[in-house]
Design a protein around this nucleic acid. Sequence first.
DNA 1: CCAGCCTCTTGATGCATGTCAAGAAAGATT
DNA 2: AATCTTTCTTGACATGCATCAAGAGGCTGG
Lengths: 248, 248
Amino acid sequence: MMPQTVPRPAAGAARCKRCILHARCLPLGLEQDALQSFDAILQLPRPLKRGETLVRQGDPFTSLYVVRSGSLKQSLAQDGQRGQVLNFYLAGEIVGLDGIGEQRYHSSVVALEATFVCKLPFTRLEDLAERVPGLRGQLYRCMSRELRNDQRMLCLLSGRTAEQRLASFLIGLSERFRSRGYSLYRFHLSMSRSDIASYLGLVLETVSRTLARFQEQGILSVSGRELAIHDHEALSMLAWENSSAGAT
Amino acid sequence: MMPQTVPRPAAGAARCKRCILHARCLPLGLEQDALQSFDAILQLPRPLKRGETLVRQGDPFTSLYVVRSGSLKQSLAQDGQRGQVLNFYLAGEIVGLDGIGEQRYHSSVVALEATFVCKLPFTRLEDLAERVPGLRGQLYRCMSRELRNDQRMLCLLSGRTAEQRLASFLIGLSERFRSRGYSLYRFHLSMSRSDIASYLGLVLETVSRTLARFQEQGILSVSGRELAIHDHEALSMLAWENSSAGAT
DNA sequence: CCAGCCTCTTGATGCATGTCAAGAAAGATT
DNA sequence: AATCTTTCTTGACATGCATCAAGAGGCTGG
């Protein structure tokens, strides 16, 4: 179960200072007064229902959003093809960075469950960043992190087996939960098999089968969307095992 | 053939103003005096030989580089695996953006042919950006563009056939050459089959065979690394044709 | 509590692409 | 020019995953 320890947003200002995400969110490392200015431009956490769209591909870019609780998926539709899932966002992560360049959101982001997000109007954020070097640095850092993320995904999609992809995905999720103070070993998958499949460049049947195989091998158990990892090490091994393909 | 119209760098300062890349490079849209300040921090074009490493994965991040002429490949080594090619850089493109966040280069970049790059020490660039909003915007724009690029690649690697991948790759290259004033229809591939394969998540044999098939179909001809596209439209069709896989 | 829908599981089959292997072309070195 | 090395091509074969299909399980709303 995804714990519900998460803040029912306080009335009034957003109050980053008290937010439990304080340690991993955008304003990380800001001074007292910078933090207050940041607080001032940050809009009240907005509730999203499961399936609700936060930003729509092609819409004019206005704001970044910080996930306060819950989770979302980012997906890109092209031509006639079905949407490709590009990413999943958890608490403390920032949505909308790919819109900065073109002034339009380049992908859609949809809530996977009941979710709260804080809105950051970008023009005001930029004004503030002009005065606060630390914030500018954080912004760069976030974009850069996203870049690295995508690059890891490119490696994953390029010539790795279904087992390796799924193992990496689960290990990655597990670590993201851990770093948020949740269990490394048991968690709830808020995304469907089909979302996972799309994200990993597979079809949902393969995801289902591969999970079944992991379960047979005693590495984990799944029941619906509840997951328990029994042999974290074995899973890691699978994830990083050598395969093939690739060049210099 | 990759034309050699390209500037033998002038002695003295870098002279962005006269650079033929002026229209598509980082300082795009800067005012006269901002441009001069930019010029001042930009270091003399440096020549790289084929195979020479510009930035090495893991080294401390100090500078961005702008490609003045030639081309490079970006690749990421993980664990015991062979390096994965993440990107190819052509004239006017910016190398090193993924290093900003962690203060280390996250991937290696190697020249594919004789190449000139202009060096931009990042601390000085940041200082300047503090005073020149336009430059800041350009920086964001570049990172954002790189993000979108990677996202396109993720879509490409996810459930598309070898034909579609290669066709997309060639169309993409073709357009990048066109926007640089070169021929849309004939160009030189500075990267090896194996680089292309890695980039596209294939093995080099598949690249070779697929090129051969395109040639049989009269879509293009290849002879070593010289490429001539005969039926640009057919190639585009192949690139965007519907396939399968994917979710909501 | 039942009906209907959505999501997930499991099985059978086929094909695209990886793997292994051998040799041809193209460049580099002497 | 001759030799060596690297890169590319082509073939035969194996296999991992997609595809198609059927049905089970779990929610939701009447």
